[in-house]
Design a protein around this nucleic acid. Structure first.
Lengths: 118, 118
DNA sequence: TACGTAGATCGATGGCGGTTGATCTCGAGC
DNA sequence: GCTCGAGATCAACCGCCATCGATCTACGTA
């Protein structure tokens, strides 16, 4: 029936042949995909995403003592999340006197942002 | 010393007081953060990110039989990743005859994409 | 020196996630 | 009805991750 050919034109094949030619392929290379996956994984937690949101709205630095009380998690947990974000290159920090100040590195978000927008 | 006041003007306080007023806050609500975190988590794997990349470059549907050979993982693994993406609302699928066809739901990426671009 | 505080680290726990071989389901063709 | 293929599901393994109490370190102050 002609209907079959219209629905799956590429899959008429002899028995034993591979099901279809590889006509599709990813344009993003594996290395790029791995880099973006690292950033996505760092953003894959509501607390971390809100931490980045706070830091992005402040061009300068934000003291950890202002970040900790914003969330319903203990202080070691916030510290852990900030460490994960730093490990992904999304934020960095400086220590001055008693306090630690975190700030965003916007370049780290560019690749994923561009890919999502494309 | 005046230097101290310049470095941490907000942290001069009486003993026992909280370290600082909450002058910063996330603009993204927890619910939005949780929704975006779900999408980010779905993209937090190189195989899934490349799967989405392939599907986004095809306005229509792509047969699973074309997706599976693109990656160095077993068939159940690809099926699992597609299920994760479907669970996050990023893709959907239809079955016709023997084959399953997947396609992207671009709306699912909009919120995260807009937040990253903002 | 002694004490208090900011924040990072440690250790333990419980749950989630990626992977795969085996199996199951469903449709097609003989 | 039988067989075969596409793809989803199952079961199991293993490693990673979020969380938090306890502890540690560095600094400031009296």
């Amino acid at each position: 029936m002609a209907v079959d050919l219209e629905l799956t034109p590429k899959h008429k094949r002899a028995p034993g042949e591979p099901c279809c030619e590889p006509v599709v392929y990813p344009e993003v290379e594996r290395q790029e995909a791995e880099r973006m996956a690292v950033v996505a994984k760092a953003l894959a937690d509501p607390v971390r995403l809100q931490l980045v949101d706070v830091l992005r709205r402040h061009a300068g630095e934000v003291c950890v003592c202002e970040l900790t009380p914003l969330f319903d998690v203990a202080q070691p947990t916030v510290s852990h999340h900030l460490k994960v974000l730093r490990g992904a290159g999304i934020v960095d920090s400086v220590r001055r006197r008693l306090w630690a100040y975190y700030f965003v590195r916007p370049e780290a978000l560019e690749e994923l942002s561009d890919w999502l927008r494309s």
